[in-house]
Amino acid sequence: MSDEITPELFNYLVELAALELTPEEGEYLRGQLNNQLKAIRELERIPVPDDVPAAARGVPYPAALRPALRADVPRPSDLADAIRGQAPDTDDGYFVVPEIPHTDLGTGA
């Protein structure tokens, strides 16, 4: 059977995933993906009646178990500097990044 994830589809996924791979790495990962899809096809082995709903989680959360949401109000934090301090490059409280690609929509004068 031919591979479900062809080299073309794989390259598209790599672009979507914001990755870049060496050819050897790409070949290994594409092979693993196709092997995993063979295992995933086991899901088609049993009938799943139409009235079976999707479960986004296992445990039901009745209202009694749901903690009340806290008020959505800003609170001071003393962690801001420690958090900003983790950034690879900052300037005066801003993250520094290279050129941000943009599309010229031709609306300028």
């Binding site: 983790q86 690879p88 490059d89 290279p98 050129e99 690609p101």
Partner: peptide
């Protein structure tokens, strides 16, 4: 950008980063 590893390589733009 925000934390963790950033490539030391010179890159053309944010997507390449």
């Amino acid at each position: 950008v925000k934390y963790g590893y950033r490539t030391p390589a010179a890159v053309a733009d944010l997507r390449a980063l």
